[in-house]
Design a protein around this nucleic acid. Structure first.
Lengths: 278, 278
DNA sequence: GCATTTATGAAACTACTGATACACAAGTTA
DNA sequence: TAACTTGTGTATCAGTAGTTTCATAAATGC
């Protein structure tokens, strides 16, 4: 048996595998390496395949028997726990030397996340959450061409935890109608990233004149909307020269939702329970 | 069996143990939990005792059989790797003691990203991208309650780089109409995460019978849609007991888009240029 | 130092797990 | 559509692991 890790062998062999064998492979990767240390029957059950298929799967990986495969797994975890440097890295994701596109991309996305955490002052973040947990004022959401989905996502979740959540429609024409309903002190969350949408700046200007409180979620280059915003949460989005990624915006949105849920728990839990039952 | 950890039980029981049994205990603690997952004979050999002694040792710990003891060990490591909160903090970046909510949240989100990279075999990822770059067949997208926004986001971007992109509407009623347009060999990307949508399973079943190629993007617990899927990209989403995060799904979507753009560059660049000018 | 108790490992046993063969289903090609 | 190839699960078998028994060796008490 050569020195490759079991997870590595799976990645190498997966294209040769049949549908049921792939279920076994995914099952193992999903709870790695535990499932492989269980008896064949349990492995099969958990992965949604038959024992025979699991056996064929380990044969495909190049092991001459199931016990042999299990020994490889044990030796792998033993080696890992013995080297103090690598301790703490979960077993599944040791980087193979020939890091693939997905690995590189995700690694950069993770860098962006970390940078974003550094970019946003905790007090700003907290201020937005307390404002959202405060249900006296209404809360509106608006996004641009490629960020509208974020507004939609946030709206759907925010609706679960508080009342008075509404969405500002994308088309500038219909916006003027909606502006009538906005009251002074209402919160408006605006998403805007590079190739900034001029319509959003106009919108922000009008909202500001109506004394709405604008929260801007943007990228590191700062949408011009920030002129009118009370609170700004900038996120790192740059991947390379041609590509920006909105993953960090979503992460911030989810963090906002989680924290707001926490702050508004007494009322939010009742509301969520009621929605659940309906 | 009560909930105590195996290591805890050893410490509780160690004074009752006889000399040879203590050797077994020391051996297990020395390479924990690997040695306990080996066959009895190997455990015995490594610990310098006989098989019978090892058996008596696990009996002393309160397990009614050796397999029972091994299951406890597996469940223990499974629980540990599944709960991000208890997972060992990486040695390098120890969190600031007064680390703020946002930092913690984002740090866990980054963990999820990394875990996701380990969960998805590069060849599967690549297969999806080449399929998307191939413009002969049409490409459809569908999502569930909280993942529909991902379908929308992906649709918007995919439209920029290739023709024949369409969205399957959320309401089951209108779906039957749309199914008429689907041709054998078409690609359908389905998003489905926990609290899986039964409507999506139905949809997938129908699509499979029409010989559409289904690509499933799901969470680590695997939507039942996977029975019908040709390719599956599982992502880690778990944050804590009450909250799952879709950030890793979006990261994968963006990676897919970036890679597909790369693969389809000759045609995609022309198309994007034309859209730009319009 | 002898008797008694307790601990320990070797060997026999049985139960269960992993392996194999086979039949059926699904998908593919002509 | 029919013939064929490939994949998949069920049932059966064989081998090995876990368990038990028992004889022997320490350890302890008298």
């Amino acid at each position: 048996m050569d020195g490759k890790s079991v997870a590595g062998r799976i990645h190498d062999a997966i294209h040769r595998l049949t549908a049921a064998e792939k279920r076994a492979a995914r099952g193992l990767l999903g709870s790695y390496p535990t499932l492989g240390l269980a008896p064949v029957a349990e492995f099969a059950e958990q992965a949604g395949a038959s024992s025979a298929t699991v056996l064929r799967f380990v044969a495909q990986l190049g092991y001459k028997s199931y016990p042999d495969f299990q020994r490889a797994l044990r030796e792998e975890m033993e080696a890992r726990s013995k080297s103090p440097l690598q301790r703490g890295v979960p077993l599944g994701d040791q980087r193979e030397p020939d890091s693939h596109f997905l690995d590189q991309f995700i690694s950069r996305a993770a860098d962006n996340l970390r940078a974003t955490a550094g970019l946003i002052p905790p007090s700003e973040f907290e201020a937005v959450c307390t404002r959202l947990a405060e249900t006296k004022a209404q809360c509106w959401l608006a996004g641009g061409r490629f960020t509208d989905f974020l507004a939609g996502y946030m709206e759907a979740h925010l609706r679960l935890i508080r009342p008075g959540v509404r969405r500002l429609d994308g088309r500038p024409a219909t916006r003027t109608d909606q502006l009538i309903d906005i009251r002074p002190g209402d919160t408006v969350i605006i998403f805007d990233v590079r190739r900034y949408d001029p319509a959003l700046v106009e919108l922000a200007a009008e909202l500001a004149s109506q004394r709405a409180q604008i929260v801007l979620i943007t990228d590191e280059w700062m949408s011009p909307v920030n002129r009118f915003a009370k609170l700004v949460l900038p996120c790192r989005t740059e991947m390379d020269r041609t590509w920006d990624a909105n993953g960090s915006l979503l992460a911030v949105v989810e963090a906002l939702l989680a924290r707001t849920t926490e702050l508004a728990w007494p009322s939010a839990s009742k509301r969520m329970g009621a929605i659940e039952r309906s």
